[in-house]
Nucleic acid binder design. Sequence first.
DNA 1: AACTGAAAGGTCAGGAAAGGTCAAAGCCGT
DNA 2: ACGGCTTTGACCTTTCCTGACCTTTCAGTT
Lengths: 153, 153
Amino acid sequence: MGNLADYIESYLKRLLKGAEQGMIELQRRELAEMFRCVPSQISYVLGTRFTPDRGYVVETRRGGGGYIRIVRLSFRPSQDLASLIEAEIGDEITGRRADALLLRLEDEGLIDEGDRTFMRAVIDRETERIHPSYRAAVRASLLKAMVMLVLRD
Amino acid sequence: MGNLADYIESYLKRLLKGAEQGMIELQRRELAEMFRCVPSQISYVLGTRFTPDRGYVVETRRGGGGYIRIVRLSFRPSQDLASLIEAEIGDEITGRRADALLLRLEDEGLIDEGDRTFMRAVIDRETERIHPSYRAAVRASLLKAMVMLVLRD
DNA sequence: AACTGAAAGGTCAGGAAAGGTCAAAGCCGT
DNA sequence: ACGGCTTTGACCTTTCCTGACCTTTCAGTT
């Protein structure tokens, strides 16, 4: 994990952990100076790591006194678990989005790394035997089934 | 066993043995240089020797600072369980046989009644959407995935 | 109220640095 | 000679990082 984007990401996540209400506010230019990079690098990190997919919302404001606010969304089900999972995963899902979701669950402490790796292995294994055009659907079914099984209670 | 792929395989396995958390991280290009071969040779070794079937998961990242991470599953589909499950379930299974299997697992005290009814419900739900001719296959995948997930460790 | 300049953040394209793919050639045992 | 692993190399995709240029907001001036 040697690249700059990763460092910035983990710095921001550390800040978020220590923050009230799972929300932080900062300035792009300042942060860029701190990491000695161009400001657009910060935008890059936000755009690739703090996406809704991964459970974050970013609000910004330009101009004097501008800021960037990062809000962490909690996966904690407000409704019932099944419909939340249904909404997140749907009938089909790419391998990438599946990874992102598992990572997010790990990030939130809902599953551990072993769970994540295991589920990934199962998905890879079951998925590669079948015809490519059904993969996305089977992947979704498997993911939903396993996540529900692990998260229920 | 004099071929390059075998040497690379055993080198990686040696690294894995000495690694904390049964996980190593390396760069494809570097490793290729070390063995004086083309990078795709590394991919070949990973694709043929470090498969989920054999108890490994490989995660990679491209681009600057890219890496390859090899994780050994702690629940290495312990011959017993994995092959038992594979043998019992196979590539396809009817709803009836699935029920029977779940009941048997409950009988043997390997899962409780809650697990069983939950898994059944998940299978029914995921299975009803899809085309009838694929149900048996998807049912098998789901069942295998969930049973392994619950029985692992 | 309108104008203007400075101070944010946004966008986008391009180059460099990984790893991925796939088909063809090579090698080896039967 | 054949079939199945191995190896190689040409070409592709993804990710990171930077820099040039754009837009928005605010504060002060006219």
